[in-house]
């Protein structure tokens, strides 16, 4: 162990203690994820056996093998459709999240504005915004990807804005007093204290938003959209009883959703390595 040499200061033990509290991930990556991988394989196998043994009709539940066949057969087309919808999701995500953060930054400055806005934001956040999809389809045109981006943007805007406001305002009173003792400007207090304090909140919201954006894009396509959109494809294939195709598209959508989430997670690891949720410790 480090720091076992003795010196006059007597701080060597303390230094050793510091090394001890740094979280060390002893398990390898494989050991860590092994249980999840096993559960996944088990679920797929059970699903396949279940469908075969009970001769489940395809329109109820296709077997994983059938879905896989459809996926590999239509891969090129599915990827093209998937990319189209992913672009809608990403566009909406970018617009909604940046607006959410900007509005939060603008209003957190004025307590009165925040207090007046927050009840509306929280109410809006619990409204099923997807219900507005047909209306936005009308505004921008069903074929226009902008109509889907708008829906996604509105959906992700509220959780991002609410969480950012929370992060900017729920600051430790002592930390604020410290800034006050330095007679720090509002600007310095915002960027050296409130914003860093808000980052973990913002990343939590971005993770939620990443998942929501793919859901939002697909579901709003169910209400009509461009022929080259994944949601439109799913509804068409389902209407024509090609359920394995519909399922293949759904699986693709899931993979995209999870990927978006993982991207945000990775960015978070680099952006706030100091936060307990990233260090792998509970507060």
């Amino acid at each position: 162990m480090a720091g076992q040499t003795t010196d006059q200061t007597g701080f060597s033990d303390v230094a050793a203690g510091v090394d001890a509290v740094i979280p060390a991930r002893k398990q390898s990556w494989f050991q860590y994820y092994l249980p999840s991988i096993l559960i996944f394989i088990f679920a797929i196998v059970t699903w396949e056996l279940f469908v075969r043994l009970f001769s489940i009709q395809e329109f109820l539940l296709p077997a994983p093998s059938a879905i896989y066949n459809s996926l590999s057969l239509n891969l090129n087309q599915l990827l093209k459709l998937g990319w189209f919808t992913t672009k809608e999701a990403l566009g909406g995500f970018a617009i909604g999240c940046s607006l959410g953060i900007l509005v939060a930054l603008a209003t957190a400055r004025w307590t009165i504005a925040t207090e007046a806005l927050m009840p509306f934001a929280i109410a809006a956040n619990s409204v099923p915004i997807l219900a507005f999809a047909p209306i936005l389809n009308n505004w921008f045109g069903v074929d226009n990807p902008l109509s889907k981006m708008a829906i996604v943007a509105v959906i992700v805007f509220f959780p991002v804005m609410i969480n950012t406001v929370r992060g900017l305002t729920l600051v430790d009173a002592n930390a604020l007093e410290l800034m006050a003792s330095y007679a720090a400007s509002e600007f310095d207090t915002l960027f050296r204290l409130r914003v860093p304090n808000a980052l973990p909140y913002i990343f939590n919201a971005l993770k939620v938003a990443a998942a929501l954006s793919m859901i939002g894009a697909i579901v709003s396509e169910y209400f009509g959209g461009n022929r080259s959109a994944l949601g439109v494809y799913i509804t068409q294939e389902a209407a024509q009883f090609r359920f394995a195709n519909a399922w293949a598209a759904i699986i693709l959508a899931c993979i995209v959703g999870i990927t978006l989430y993982l991207i945000v997670l990775t960015v978070e690891r680099f952006a706030i390595p100091w936060h307990p949720s990233v260090r792998g410790e509970e507060r």
Binding site: N174, E177, S181, R192, P196, I272, W274, H275
Partner: peptide, 27 residues
């Protein structure tokens, strides 16, 4: 206070956890 006539040590250490030790001292 505006003239920064004093330096204060609070009862709680009140370090910013996103800053390293040195960066905290430099604040």
């Amino acid at each position: 206070r505006l003239d920064q006539d004093y330096g204060m040590v609070f009862q709680a250490a009140t370090l910013y956890e996103w800053r390293t030790v040195s960066k905290n001292v430099q604040l």
